[in-house]
Simulated scan of single mutants.
Amino acid sequence: MNSQPTTGHKVAAEVLGTFVLVFFGVGAAVMTGAFNEAAHPSHYVTTGLAFGLTVLVMASAVGRISGGHFNPAVTLGAAVAGRLSWSAVPLYWISQIVGGVLAGAALFFILGTSDNYDVDTMGMGANGFGDASAIGISLGGALVIEALLTAVFLWVILAVTDSRTEVSAVLAPAAIGMMLTLIHFASMSATGTSVNPARSFGPALFAGGDALSQVWVFFVAPLVGAAIAGVSYAFMFGKDPAFDENTPEEPFEDLDRSN
Results as ranks from 00 to 15, higher is better:
Gly17Ile: 11
Pro173Gly: 10
Arg83Met: 00
Thr47Tyr: 02
Val144Phe: 12
Asp118Gly: 10
Ile65Thr: 12
Tyr233Lys: 02
Gly48Trp: 12
Arg199Ser: 01
Ala151Trp: 12
Phe237Glu: 06
Ala105Thr: 01
Arg199Met: 02
Ser85His: 00
Ala79Gln: 04
Asp254Ile: 08
Ile110Leu: 15
Pro41Trp: 06
Met124Ile: 07
Val15His: 01
Gly136Phe: 00
Phe109Pro: 02
Val156Tyr: 04
Asp118Trp: 04
Ile176Phe: 04
Val55Phe: 10
Pro241Ser: 09
Phe19Arg: 02
Gly63Thr: 08
Thr18Gln: 03
Thr18Pro: 02
Val55Thr: 11
Ser3Gln: 15
Asp115Glu: 14
Asn246Lys: 14
Gly52Glu: 14
Arg83Lys: 12
Thr54Val: 01
Gly33Asn: 08
Ala242Tyr: 02
Phe235Gln: 14
Pro197Cys: 01
Phe201Leu: 09
Phe252Ala: 01
Leu111Arg: 15
Leu205Pro: 05
Trp155Ser: 05
Ala39Gln: 06
Ala142Asp: 03
Ala59Ser: 15
Ser133Ala: 05
Pro72Gly: 05
Val45Leu: 09
Arg83Trp: 04
Ala50Asn: 03
Ala175Tyr: 03
Ala147Ser: 03
Val98His: 01
Pro203Leu: 08
Leu171Tyr: 06
His69Gly: 09
Pro251Ile: 09
Val224Asn: 02
Gly136Asp: 00
Glu253Ile: 06
Leu223His: 03
Phe19Asp: 06
Phe235Trp: 13
Leu53Arg: 15
Gly225Phe: 02
Ser60Trp: 12
Thr121Ser: 12
Leu76Phe: 02
Ile135Phe: 03
Met179Leu: 10
Asp115Cys: 03
Gly63Asp: 09
Glu14Gln: 08
Ala234Glu: 13
Leu84Ile: 07
Gly112Ala: 11
Gly177Lys: 05
Asp244Ile: 08
Ala174Phe: 14
Val30Pro: 07
Thr191Asn: 06
Gly52Trp: 04
His40Gln: 13
Gly100Lys: 08
Asp240Ser: 07
Val119Met: 06
Tyr92Lys: 01
His9Ser: 15
Ala103Leu: 01
Ala105Leu: 12
Ala190Phe: 04
Thr181Met: 14
Arg64Asn: 14
Phe129Ser: 13
Leu139Trp: 00
Phe153His: 08
Asp256Leu: 11
Gly202Lys: 03
Val62Ala: 04
Ala134Asp: 10
Leu149Asn: 11
Asp115Gln: 08
Ile183Asn: 04
Glu14Thr: 06
Ala29Pro: 07
Val26Asn: 07
Tyr117Met: 10
Gly202Asn: 02
Val62Gln: 09
Ala227Met: 12
Val217Glu: 08
Asp210Arg: 14
Ala190Arg: 08
Ala59Asn: 07
Ser66Ala: 09
Ala50Gln: 03
Gly33His: 11
Val26Lys: 06
Ile157Gln: 09
Val30Asn: 05
Phe252Thr: 01
Phe206Lys: 04
Gly77Ala: 00
Leu84Trp: 00
Phe237Tyr: 07
Ala175Glu: 06
Thr121Gln: 14
Phe185Glu: 02
His184Arg: 13
Gly77Glu: 00
Ala126Gln: 10
